[in-house]
């Protein structure tokens, strides 16, 4: 039962977990953050709702942390396996392949940092998870810039991941369907970027 013998299963699991639940969770997360645009109270209310969900630890473990850890660690292994060749082959989709790996690595580091500050500190050091915690983190230009890079990387990785997911599972086979889903992915990128960036700027 080595990793190699079950490569097919692990790759498919990696592809699936990236969308369900990790990508879905990220979208919900960005939407909850957006409530900060409407003011401190509305954000604290939305965050409270998430924090007080029943079976929170169970949900966090199985909907967020385990899938995210598997997707992240296995994904880093996949990313490091590629011999990127955008220097020779300048095709658009080869660039997207390259960026999928770069943004994945950035997202991996960003999420570790983000979880450390907003989760581990909250659980173990008694920090309260509210608007002020986040506002304190991004009150300097460097942290805010790193957050924006992290958010953009996560969004790119997710929308391009949807596009490759549809191919990997055999849903979009024809060049035309792959073109159409490419445009949809680009549209989704701008929508999520709007939501994510406006939300983080509401804290700054």
């Amino acid at each position: 039962m080595g990793v190699k013998n079950n490569q097919h299963f692990y790759r498919k699991l990696h592809s699936l977990l990236g969308i369900i639940p990790v990508g879905i969770f990220m979208t919900v997360h960005l939407l909850v953050n957006y409530s900060a645009v409407w003011g401190i109270d509305s954000y604290n209310k939305a965050a409270n709702f998430m924090v007080n969900l029943p079976f929170k630890y169970f949900l966090e473990l199985f909907v967020i942390f385990l899938p995210l850890l598997f997707h992240g660690i296995y994904g880093v292994a996949i990313a490091l396996q590629a011999k990127n060749n955008i220097g020779t082959y300048h095709y658009g989709r080869n660039w997207k392949f390259f960026f999928q790996r770069i943004t994945g690595l950035i997202a991996f580091v960003f999420i570790i940092w983000h979880v450390w500050e907003t989760k581990i500190q909250v659980e173990f050091n008694g920090v309260e998870a509210n608007y002020h915690l986040m506002a304190g983190i991004v009150d300097n230009g460097i942290a805010l810039t790193l957050y924006i890079i992290g958010i953009l990387s996560c969004i790119y990785h997710f929308v391009n991941g949807i596009w490759t997911f549809l191919i990997t599972w055999g849903i979009t086979a024809s060049p035309k369907s792959q073109k159409v889903t490419e445009y949809i992915a680009i549209g989704l990128f701008f929508v999520l970027t709007f939501v994510g960036i406006r939300a983080i700027l509401a804290f700054a």
């Binding site: 490569q7 790759r11 095709y91 997207k96 392949f97 490759t164 990997t168």
Partner: peptide
């Protein structure tokens, strides 16, 4: 199996 179709990364080169 190992090195099969899932090793494709959709670079489409």
């Amino acid at each position: 199996g190992d090195g099969g179709i899932t090793a494709c990364g959709n670079s489409q080169n």
